[in-house]
Write a protein that binds this DNA or RNA. Structure first.
Lengths: 195, 195, 195, 195
DNA sequence: GATGAATGAGGATTCATTCAT
DNA sequence: AATGAATGAATCCTCATTCAT
């Protein structure tokens, strides 16, 4: 008789929204945003066509929300501990990258795709650039501490290598020897200080 | 008013086709294949809607042809001279990559985009993988000759770095210090032999 | 926390219904029935989407009830006192019209709108016609008493003039000099008897 | 073999567009703009759903074009000959109104409907107001010449009467004795000068 | 080879209405 | 009585593609 409580409604909303966001991320990431129809999202999420619009004003807004959540996921995965030694910081940057590749492929594939296009979603490129600059700077600081013969390009090259591995895995999957490269990179930056 | 010769017709046809392919590549590469309409292509190519179908069976076939041409462009740009010394081969691989980034951004952006999606165009990923394996092998052979302390991962890492720079430039443009990285890479592999 | 009495429930129900009817009339009248969504009505009435259907079987029934209430309002505003003199009857008909224009614009705008369309709501046109015939007949009777030179078309023309002013105010608002016309009409039919 | 000439295309376009405009006017006018679907228009016009958008950017633009054409029709119907005597000008204003009612009901019904709503189409009300002011002024000038006892409200009242008849016919059709009123009006303004 | 009118399936979105609570 | 999540038909519009000329 009594209507559902506010809290109950909120829970329903939250879980339903989460569901849609997850399904949409998966589809956008594998087929691309423009090649994914809202109908497909609804079908996979097992909801009606209309319900999506109860939670998101438009397909575009759905994408935007996914992007913003994705950036948060990246931020959370790439936690940097400033207390730690320079070497550990570098090593853990590398490890976090490989973790992303392993665990959050949907997220990074989606970001990569959107980043490669121009148009309405240029804000994504700006967000990526900002993150890139931040990461490179952290690496530079750490590298300087370790290596007196520090090369100005070193940090950028390391980032490029990591981004490259990421990109290659997204495109070529198992063809890419990630473990081999991870070991080599880890070893290189572990040894460094002893030189 | 003399009737055009067969050869002339052929040339007109060829240049018209070329025109369409160029326009389509530009649009696909910047807005994405699924976000580009055949009408937009026709407009920009200054031809009628229907004419496109005189040259290509479908939008998909147009894409396929673009992809195949793009691979040819990559192959032509990445000419390898087996006669040359190992060091020069590596250096020129690096140089050819930066040349691609500089001169053929449309081509690589389009390939990268399509490579990140799954679906009807999975043959692209296979072609990219094949090319990757070939390039890596060539690099491995060359590196072995130069360096006795040769690391198994070295070739893969170099390719990853180059792909990474490519990807970063596509996404972040001027934010990326390409010249700096190019110098560093070139220097690194020039010095190698002297060790 | 005493349970509400039946009467109290009844009152709440009635006032809630009244609220919905008022909001709906306002919206229908300004934006049109077909351009107004039940959701908009619910929002403005500060009730939930579903509650509307607790009071009305459908959007159409809501409209129907509004129409019937509107006719009652017209009837109540146009009270005719048969006891009064012919002249006063005419003058007060005029006055009642201007009062409607001034005070019940929502009601008449809505009626006018629905009356101009054909389809499911043709009963409205019949009701309007019936009212028209009644009014014209009353006017004819009154005019005959006053004027021996009575023209057969006089009553119809007076009604047309009044309907015209109404329509003009609805469409053009302040552009229409209602007071000027009201004075002129009142004067004309006040003087009549002295001729 | 040879493509259709430009002129041929233009003719096709023109007649097809005309067809759509006519069908849309009919439907908008009888069922209302918001209650008419583009599909209904296409069906009645015996064209495909999509073709409409080859001629009009949107349903709204289709309406806008209809409105502008309708105003032109009104202007053409209400041609005023400034050479003629004041009396004839008044009489012919009256006659043109009845002609509109008789021959262009779709047009005026559509204008009346749109004029009664507020929202995106307020420009219609402004156009109607402008036309009203112009007409009233012409009538005032003419009436002054004829009648020394000229009443300031006379022109407005005549316009109101004509608009009222128009409105009444649209809503009540045959219930309204148009001929009777036309005769009475004509007679009244023919006699005037003899006073 | 070339045109652009025409098609109709499919896309995003809105809406009246239902229902469990 | 009241809530708002959920439905799916219907809406406006776009698109790849075809076809007569």
């Amino acid at each position: 008789m009594s209507p559902k409580s506010k809290k109950q409604f909120e829970e329903i909303r939250e879980s339903s929204k989460e569901n849609i966001l997850n399904v949409a991320l998966k589809l956008f990431s594998s087929k691309g945003y423009f090649n994914t129809s809202t109908r497909q999202i609804a079908e996979r999420a097992k909801i009606s066509n209309g319900l999506l619009y109860n939670y998101f004003k438009s397909k575009e807004e759905l994408l935007t929300e996914i992007i913003h959540r994705s950036f948060k996921i990246l931020d959370n995965t790439i936690v940097s501990d400033k207390e730690q030694s320079a070497e550990i910081q570098i090593i853990s940057t590398i490890e976090r990258f490989f973790e992303l590749i392993d665990k959050k492929q949907n997220v990074i594939r989606m970001m990569a795709q959107m980043g490669l296009q121009t148009g309405k979603f240029d804000f994504i490129n700006k967000m990526i650039s900002k993150k890139y600059i931040g990461e490179v700077n952290k690496l530079k600081t750490a590298l300087k501490k370790i290596d007196s013969n520090f090369d100005e390009a070193e940090a950028n090259l390391l980032m490029a290598t990591l981004d490259g591995i990421m990109f290659q895995v997204l495109v070529m999957g198992d063809v890419i020897p990630t473990d081999l490269m991870k070991s080599a990179l880890t070893m290189k930056y572990s040894k460094t200080k002893h030189i």
